[in-house]
Design a protein around this nucleic acid. Structure first.
Length: 515
RNA sequence: GGCGGCGUAGCUCAGUGGUAGAGCAGAGGAAUCAUAAUCCUUUGGUCGGGGGUUCAAAUCCCUCCGCCGCCA
């Protein structure tokens, strides 16, 4: 790796393998993929990791029910998540599984460091436990049952349980966390989530149980094999494992961005930086908690039967269409509602009618009227220069600024400003009229349009890699000349380039007839 | 119960003291290169209700209603 290259490390959560991949998994990873692709094109050395969380009681029980080993189960289910990466065209550089040897080593090393520093101690975990729910409840959640026994909120009987457990001294880290938050005002985004995190920490932290003796499908605690690590240390440490821990991690650590849905924010924004600071490791630069999707105005749930599989979206909208609609409209961080009608409208309006038609009307005109050759420009008018400036100079900084704060919808707004400007330009300049009156001017207009389309195709690569590639192929742009460094006049498209008969890149979607 | 957020055009949202905005949808027109796509113009809002501060409030304060989040 060249020493002068900037590094960028971005992660998805590791997904629990007791589930099939759904739209939410695809969404988290997609957001990371777009950022990873953007940074690569923008000259960064990128490490983009995703993976699966494969330990725990539930996996063990599921495997028993199926009569297979936990390892066999996780091998199978983990593959579903790797398949999704292929189907969604994700460009992850690594796929971490918590059952891998490298991860077990990393966890045990981190554990030992925490023990040496006095941050982990052995004690008893005691509380009211409901066997049926596999959960502990606090005193004030309990009701008195009919036979004198206590009953948890779910109605399950609880009993007093004491279990030996290792604890992490989280209670000692509250003030240091608050200091860290104050010093890093962008550590958690969106801001409203950061407020929740701070408020949670301010309310006081209790030490955290970090081991279990009730099951053995996990990372063994070094020196006390009765215990396996409980979820937090095991799962979160994957981010260090991928960076090379316990070997030198300085290339990619601290991570630039941990991406996740809002339900697991606390673990990433409170426990994780506490573990890291306790171990003498710098916390990540940012954790981002995105929202959830509803469907046609309703929460996704198995009982409603409205859970959307990513594969259903891919079938209807294609890979790039799916990637586009998930990021185009909803402010990232907010919950979003997915509606079929809205998705159709967006794809047809922005992709088919907007960008797709712009490319098609331009290239088709050149193919028919200019002997399929991108014509040479003559003197540029103010109007020409204005469009070129937008596409070559202004667009990238605007998009970069938005993506640096994970505003995907705003970044796409900035790109579509240029799409719209190009459609205004073609109508104002009207090359089809110039064909009869001034072919020199017509050639200039067509050239300027080709260059604008080139810039647009280059910059949509992170969001719609295949479609962008098709457009760039049609413009005969070499595969190694598509980085963001080419967004400048010095890399402008070459006049004289002979093109093939153009094909529409974004076909218009037609509503299927009601079945 | 405590803390926080939201409520603006039919829909999705921007707008934090100075003449209410954008995109989509609707209406009218232009153009005919293109995937019946594009471009221009335009209809549409007592800015959740009420009260207050101010020369001036979507914006600041109080209160009520509704929705949501975090915590207990």
């Amino acid at each position: 790796m060249p020493a002068n290259k900037k590094n960028y490390y971005i992660t998805t959560p590791i997904y629990y393998v007791n589930d099939v991949p759904h739209m939410g998994h695809a969404y988290s990873t997609l957001a990371c993929d777009v950022l990873a692709r953007f940074k690569r094109l923008d000259g960064y050395n990128v490490l983009f990791a995703t993976g699966t969380d494969e330990h725990g009681m539930k996996i063990k029980q599921s495997a028993e029910k199926l009569g297979i080993t936990p390892q066999a189960l996780t091998d199978k289910v983990s593959q579903n998540f790797r398949d999704l990466c292929g189907a969604m065209n994700f460009s992850n550089d690594d796929f971490i599984r918590t059952t891998e040897e490298r991860h077990i080593k990393a966890c045990q090393h981190l554990w030992n460091v925490l023990v040496e520093r006095g941050e982990i101690y052995l004690d008893k975990y005691a509380g009211w436990y409901a066997v049926r729910d596999e959960a502990y409840y606090s005193e004030d959640e309990l009701r008195d049952g009919p036979n004198g026994k206590k009953i948890g909120p779910s109605g399950a009987e609880v009993e007093w349980m004491e279990e030996e457990s290792y604890f992490f001294r989280l209670s000692a880290w509250g003030d240091k966390l608050l200091d860290f938050y104050a010093a890093h005002p962008d550590f958690v985004m969106p801001e409203t989530r950061f407020n929740e995190v701070k408020s949670f920490v301010r309310s006081g932290l209790k030490d955290l149980s970090v081991s279990r003796t009730t099951f053995d499908w996990g990372v063994p605690v070094p020196g006390n094999e009765k215990h396996v690590m409980y979820v937090w240390i095991d799962a979160l440490t994957n981010y260090l494992t991928v960076a090379g821990y316990p070997n030198d991690i300085s290339t990619f650590w601290p991570a630039d961005l941990h991406m996740m849905a809002k339900d697991i924010l606390r673990f990433h924004a409170v426990y994780w930086p506490a573990f890291l600071m306790a171990a003498g490791i710098e916390p990540p630069k940012r954790v981002f908690a995105h929202g959830w999707w509803t469907v046609e105005g309703e929460k996704m749930s198995k009982s409603l039967g409205n859970v959307i599989s990513p594969y259903a979206l891919l079938e209807k909208f294609g890979v790039d269409g799916t990637r586009f609609i998930l990021l185009r409209e909803v402010p990232f961080g907010n919950d979003g509602d997915f509606s079929h009608a809205n998705a159709m409208a967006r794809i047809n309006s922005d992709l088919a009618n907007g960008l797709g038609n712009l490319a098609q009307r331009t290239l088709s005109f050149i193919y028919k009227n200019c002997e399929a050759t991108i014509p040479s420009p003559s003197d540029l008018t103010e109007n020409d220069k204005a469009l070129l400036k937008k596409a070559q100079m202004d667009m990238l900084p605007a998009v970069r600024a938005e993506l640096d704060i994970q505003k995907f919808n705003k970044a796409l707004d900035a790109i579509w400003d240029v799409v719209n400007a190009a459609n205004v330009y073609i109508d104002v300049e009207a090359p089809w009229s110039l064909k009869k009156t001034d072919t020199v001017r017509m050639n200039t207009v067509l050239y300027v349009l080709c260059e604008a389309i080139r810039c647009l195709a280059v910059i949509i690569q992170p969001v719609m890699p295949d479609s962008a590639s098709q457009m760039l192929d049609q413009l005969k742009i070499a595969a190694d000349g598509r980085g963001f460094d080419t967004l400048s006049a010095s890399h402008a498209i070459k006049a004289g380039t002979v093109i093939d008969q153009p094909q529409g890149v974004f076909p218009r979607l037609v509503e299927e007839k009601a079945a």
